Deep mutational scan, measured.
Amino acid sequence: KELVSALYDYQEKSPREVTMKKGDILTLLNSTNKDWWKVEVNGRQGFVPAAYVKKL
């Protein structure tokens, strides 16, 4: 599985998104959309802005 690192804090703005803190390591589930990537963090799945994470 592919991992990404959070470059910035992000506070979810809808139920489809997830909150992350800078430095968090997230499991990348889907990166086909260039703007929003689906990740899993702390057992929750949702979307984060692609520009806020980088692949490890």
Rank of each mutant, 00 (worst) to 15 (best):
K55F: 11
K34T: 11
V48M: 01
L28T: 01
Q45K: 11
L3V: 09
R16H: 14
N30C: 13
K55S: 10
P15I: 10
K21W: 09
T32M: 11
K1H: 14
K22A: 13
V4L: 12
K13Q: 14
Y10S: 00
M20F: 11
E12Q: 14
D35Y: 15
T27N: 08
N30Y: 07
E12H: 09
T27Q: 11
K22I: 07
P49N: 02
V4H: 06
G23N: 07
N33W: 07
Q11M: 13
A51M: 12
E40K: 05
D35N: 13
A6L: 02
V18I: 15
R44V: 10
A51Q: 12
K38A: 09
K54G: 12
Y52W: 08
N42C: 10
F47E: 04
P49I: 03
D24V: 05
L29I: 14
D24T: 06
K13M: 12
G46L: 04
R44Q: 08
E17Y: 06
V41N: 12
T32K: 12
A50T: 05
W36Y: 08
K21D: 04
L56A: 07
F47M: 09
S31V: 08
L3M: 12
A51W: 10
P15L: 10
G43V: 02
E12P: 15
T19S: 15
K1N: 12
R44I: 09
P49V: 02
D9K: 03
S14I: 05
D9H: 06
D35M: 13
V41W: 07
S31M: 11
N42E: 10
G43Q: 06
G43F: 05
N42F: 08
G43P: 01
L28M: 04
Y8S: 09
P49E: 02
A50K: 06
D24M: 11
N33L: 09
R16I: 13
L29S: 02
V41D: 04
K34Y: 08
K1E: 11
L26T: 01
K38T: 08
F47H: 06
L29M: 08
F47V: 07
Q11H: 14
Y8T: 09
T32Y: 10
P15W: 12
V41Y: 11
I25H: 05
G46Q: 01
L29P: 00
K54S: 13
N42K: 09
D9F: 04
S14P: 05
Y8I: 10
W37S: 03
G46C: 04
S31T: 12
A6Y: 01
I25N: 04
D35W: 15
G23W: 05
K1D: 10
Y52R: 05
E12R: 14
G46H: 02
T19P: 07
E40V: 06
W36C: 09
V39H: 00
L28E: 01
N33Q: 09
E2W: 13
L29T: 04
K38Y: 15
D9M: 03
K38N: 07
K34M: 10
V39K: 00
V48G: 01
K54H: 12
L29N: 02
R44K: 13
K55Q: 10
Y10V: 01
K22M: 09
K13F: 05
D35P: 02
K1V: 14
S5E: 15
S31G: 11
V39Q: 00
W37F: 08
S5F: 15
P49W: 03
K38S: 08
K54W: 08
E12A: 15
T32R: 10
